[in-house]
Amino acid sequence: MPRETRLVLIPSYNTGARVLQTVREARAAWTPVWVVVDGSTDGTDALLLEEAARDPGLEVVVLPRNGGKGGAVLHGLREATRRGFTHALTMDADGQHPADRIGAMMEASRTAPEAMILGRPVFGPEAPRIRVQGRRISNWLAQVQTAGGGIGDCLFGFRVYPVAPLVAVMERHRWMRRFDFDPEAVVRLCWRGLPVVNLPVPCRYLSKEEGGVSHFHYARDNLLLTWMHTRLVLGMLPRLPALLWRRRASPPPLAATRRR
């Protein structure tokens, strides 16, 4: 059989012991799984390296300092490019994303290899209302910035990217290195003409007792996202005629036809 050219890529920063469960669940669903430890100081780098020593399907890269989620993903994508991988499924290390849906996401990517396969979160009752409502603003803005590009959720990081165009976009821009990575990546790839496939997947918000960890700081990171949306709106304006023409000339988005 040919070597699988799709991998699971997990950025991790001070996630605590919960990261081991996430990695084991991902490994039960897929090979290979890579973890990029983004300058963690909580000892999880040692735990993950021990796990990788016992599991040939797991690789762990430890970065010396924290550079943000997008920076960790880019590090992994550059290595994936060097080693011939064509697609990467990104997922968070904190247990929010369902590893048992990895196979379905990868199969959708095989069916539409040119597309982004975006998870559309289905929240449980434990999800903080302020987070659920707040993301509606970002999703509305992403639709504006892409002239109706079909993005189901711009913030949910459980998705499959074609590696080459994402690396090209990230290396052209200095941003997209922290919490602005997920929404800016999908908008800029839409600008490049990549189709979108949305698949609904459950999303869990774990309590602290369950090992849940969040590094989102409302003031700092909302300011970061505000600046991101500002530059994307400004970047959209000169592209608007081409985006509108593309919408008229192309068939309906894959996102509208691939519901499960």
Rank of each mutant, 00 (worst) to 15 (best):
G71L: 05
T22A: 05
L74K: 00
G67M: 14
R18Q: 14
E59L: 11
V33H: 00
R54C: 13
L77N: 04
H75R: 14
D38H: 02
V36Y: 03
L49P: 01
L47Y: 01
L74S: 01
Y13F: 15
L47N: 06
G16D: 09
V60H: 07
R24A: 11
A29S: 15
D38M: 03
G70S: 06
Q21C: 09
R18A: 15
D38A: 09
D38Q: 08
G76L: 04
R24F: 04
T81S: 13
V62L: 07
R18V: 13
V61C: 10
P11M: 06
P56K: 02
W34K: 06
P11H: 05
T41Q: 14
T44G: 05
E51M: 14
V73R: 02
I10S: 03
V35G: 01
N66I: 03
D55Y: 05
T31E: 15
L48Q: 00
E50W: 03
T31N: 13
E25K: 06
T31W: 07
T31V: 13
L77I: 11
V62F: 04
V19K: 01
D42E: 11
T15P: 08
D55H: 12
A52F: 02
P64G: 07
P11T: 05
G43E: 13
V73P: 01
Y13S: 00
T22D: 05
R54V: 10
W34N: 04
V61I: 14
R18L: 14
S12R: 00
A29G: 11
A17E: 15
D45T: 10
V36R: 03
P11Y: 01
E79D: 12
P32C: 09
V61Y: 11
V60S: 02
V19G: 01
E79K: 10
L47I: 01
R65M: 10
V61F: 14
R78P: 02
T31A: 14
